[in-house]
Simulated scan of single mutants.
Amino acid sequence: MPTGHVEIPALPVMIPLGVALMIVAALVLRRRGELTRGRLVSWWLAGWYAVAVLGATMLPLRLTWGPGAGEPELFRILVIPYVTMRVDDFVLNILMMLPLAAALRVVFGVRDGKRVVLTGFLISLTIETAQLLMLLFLNGARWADTNDLIANTLGAGLGWLALQQASRRRRQAEPAVRS
């Protein structure tokens, strides 16, 4: 079997995917009878957020396989949390998942903090598992890092807390309705 190599750049994937999500959002909202400018923009922002997460975590994608591909770079697998932590990456992973609570609320109506945190954990677990499998079997260039899993889950939880705080402040700022 000959050595194979594929490199998938970010923009040719992200832009068509983002546009496709915009079209799907408009069609779904129209079919449900819920198409308003505000709702459409919210869904579009949530879709582009998902595209940005995909781009930040998986793209560009560089894979090599077959004889001559070399051994997987096992130093890219960081299993022990905190000891091998890169602080800047940890903070960026927290920041990346902060908008998740808002996206889940706008698109799926999720308001429960446990569901937001679980969703953030599962999204992160999926990303890290995909990166690990590509690293081991296709000589992928990404890192599989338990710190990312922790930071992403923490970011989802902090995003939910921030959304709750913003909602409380908005309710407090609303004038009392007189009967």
Rank of each mutant, 00 (worst) to 15 (best):
G4T: 08
H5I: 13
A10G: 07
V13T: 01
L17N: 02
V19I: 15
L21T: 04
M22R: 03
L27A: 06
R31V: 00
L35I: 01
R39G: 03
L40Q: 00
L45K: 02
A46H: 11
A46P: 13
Y49E: 09
A50G: 15
A50V: 14
L54V: 10
G55M: 01
M58C: 03
M58W: 05
R62T: 04
G66Y: 11
E71T: 09
E71K: 13
P72I: 09
E73F: 12
E73M: 12
L74N: 07
F75T: 10
V79Y: 14
P81R: 05
Y82S: 09
V87Y: 03
D88F: 11
D89L: 14
V91S: 03
V91C: 02
L92S: 13
L92H: 14
M96S: 02
L100T: 08
A102S: 07
V107K: 02
V107M: 08
G109L: 15
V110S: 08
G113F: 09
G113S: 11
R115T: 06
R115G: 01
V116F: 09
V117S: 02
V117Q: 01
T119N: 04
F121L: 08
L125G: 04
I127F: 00
I127S: 00
M134G: 11
L135Y: 05
L138S: 12
G140T: 06
A141Y: 05
D145S: 10
N147H: 09
D148A: 01
L149A: 05
I150G: 03
T153H: 07
G155Y: 03
L158V: 10
A162Q: 01
A162C: 04
L163C: 00
R168D: 01
R169N: 08
R170I: 06
Q172F: 11
A173L: 07
E174I: 02
P175C: 09
S179G: 12
S179H: 14
